[in-house]
Design a protein around this nucleic acid. Structure first.
Lengths: 141, 141
DNA sequence: TTAGTTCGGTCAATATGGTTGACCTATTAT
DNA sequence: ATAATAGGTCAACCATATTGACCGAACTAA
């Protein structure tokens, strides 16, 4: 059954919630939260990125990042290595364990997208990306 | 400048964040949060809906809903009236003040969408809705 | 070399938004 | 009369964020 929603606002809300639901449940079993997934996700996309960039990408304070990051490093999911070219800086990468978890979590989400894209067709998929891209960029100005 | 993201997952994350940013800032000036907007939004869409349905729609516990709802009623944004046909039930509606606030908040978001839809074209807009609808429905099964 | 700046880590206080569990009243249904 | 439903409220708890302050190590520029 459809939720009967057609307004983009509601669609975005419900869609987002659905996409995030399974990973949230899985994270809860580790005692982790959505933040941890976000951290894993962006380290996976940009291996070796410094802490400061992660703060910028996630748009959170150093203090907000600190606790989840420490947990992920302590749990053996993330490696925080000195950058030899600037030893103040730490470069973040995923361990094998971290990669595995990130894959599981994002895998659920990518499968949801793949199913939606397949069902809606490639033109709709392109449309979705085009609109989301503009939405994401639009708020910057 | 583009964020250089093309993966749907990242797009959804950044798009959602952008859409939610302005209303969040505005709400903060009233000492309110995103929950309050969600409540206003769904009451606006379904005037007269009972508390229990709001709980279902938002997928939160009675206790989680209680505090924000009480604040909105106390602040004169929401009216909670007895349903004469079942006097246990309360039907929630927006006051003029509530309508005005909801309009301001959602207005920002609708303008973002309108701009993105206009720039991406009507086919992309339809594609976006089609994909989001499937995403939202997909997780239910 | 000294002085200043940046990167990262950490502590503390505070706010918000959610959870469960328990309990109450009023109302409706059996 | 009893049970079920709708809603409100209290309490304890946890996670996620904020700001402000401070620290050490390391790089940069005077």
């Amino acid at each position: 059954m459809s939720l009967g929603e057609n307004e983009p606002l509601a669609l975005l809300y419900f869609g987002f919630r659905t996409v995030v639901k399974r990973p949230d449940e899985e994270l809860a079993r580790f005692g982790l939260g959505r933040v941890h997934h976000r951290v894993l996700f962006f380290i996976a996309r940009r291996p070796g990125l410094p802490v400061s960039e992660l703060m910028t990408i996630l748009d959170v304070s150093k203090q907000a990042l600190h606790a989840p990051l420490r947990r992920l490093v302590g749990g053996g999911f993330v490696r925080s290595a000195e950058n030899p070219e600037d030893r103040r800086e730490r470069r973040l990468t995923l361990t094998a364990r971290g990669k595995a978890l990130e894959d599981r979590l994002s895998g659920h989400q990518r499968r949801l997208f793949a199913a939606a894209f397949k069902s809606a067709g490639p033109a709709a998929a392109r449309g979705f990306c085009s609109v989301m891209q503009r939405l994401a960029d639009g708020g910057a100005g």
